[in-house]
């Protein structure tokens, strides 16, 4: 059985279909890029992986577990913005990654000291130890995203979900963030889903690249049919991804639909 199992997922808001017949199986440790045009449901798909939304039909299981009904520590997340807490310093943001799971939402005594130590290790790893006592608002966009990724990792999630994490960064910072993410992945080998509207980024970072699009289109009622996965590329070969598509497995073809 695959690590993340998405079976026959549909999502609709009222009459408006967003996603239909999404089937995909992800192995543990895979880096999945999700690309597609605006409004094609890729962010909706991520929100469902996050369990912020539940699908109207179908299930999403992680490691064979029950489908989640609300966000939980199994899923770590980094959004394009607002993923860190503005009222906590950089270090406290990382400590919160461990402390929020307790009753009071904070750690005391020995536990706290241990958590601060681990936070400092994480700060070293994400290169933010020099700003440990500053507030996120005084950090650059790239630093904030590194903090957000570090914070998500502190809670030790089984899958990491990234929603256009580098969308608001300038090109230079974005390249450095790519390197950072690749190093981090080499160390931890975690399962990652990344939504991006940048194809190049998707193929560069991902092992697999899922493309969302609408296979059916009703010109009189655009909301009638939802989007689904129309391509499932093997993206590992860095630049020559099209040779080894996995189309046979997970794709609904326009012709058969």
């Amino acid at each position: 059985m695959s690590f993340v199992e998405v079976s026959n997922v549909w999502q609709a808001y009222g009459d408006r279909s967003i996603l239909e017949r999404v089937n995909v199986a992800i192995e543990e440790g895979e880096f999945i890029s999700i690309v597609g045009a605006s409004g094609c449901g890729k962010s909706t798909f991520l929100r469902m992986l996050l369990a912020e939304e539940t699908p109207t039909k179908g299930t999403i299981r992680i490691d064979g577990g029950e489908p989640a009904v609300e966000p939980n520590p199994e899923r770590g997340v980094v959004f394009q913005r607002y993923s860190v807490f503005p009222h906590l310093t950089v270090r406290e943001n990382l400590v919160a990654g461990e402390g929020f799971a307790t009753f009071w939402g904070r750690l005391f005594g020995v536990q706290r000291r241990a958590a601060v130590e681990r936070a400092d290790e994480m700060l070293e790893r994400i290169g933010l130890n020099h700003v440990a006592d500053q507030f996120p608002a005084s950090l650059s966009g790239g630093m904030q995203q590194r903090l957000a990724i570090g914070q998500a990792l502190t809670a030790k999630p089984r899958v990491l979900l990234l929603d256009e994490p580098f969308g608001a960064l300038d090109p230079g910072t974005r390249l450095r963030m790519h390197e950072f993410l690749q190093e981090l992945r080499a160390e931890t080998n975690m399962t990652v889903f990344m939504v991006t509207h940048d194809l190049e980024e998707g193929f560069k970072l991902g092992d697999r690249c899922l493309v969302f699009d609408k296979p059916r289109w009703d010109p009189h009622d655009p909301g009638r049919y939802g989007a689904t996965i129309t391509y499932d590329f093997d993206a590992r070969n860095n630049g020559i991804p099209f040779q080894t598509t996995k189309e046979t497995e997970n794709v609904v073809h326009a012709a058969t639909a």
């Binding site: 609300e70 939980n72 997340v77 993923s83 807490f85 998500a152 999630p157």
Partner: peptide
């Protein structure tokens, strides 16, 4: 985002 993030941290 902050509410969701807090929940993914187990809050």
């Amino acid at each position: 985002e902050q509410f969701v993030k807090a929940q993914t941290l187990g809050a």
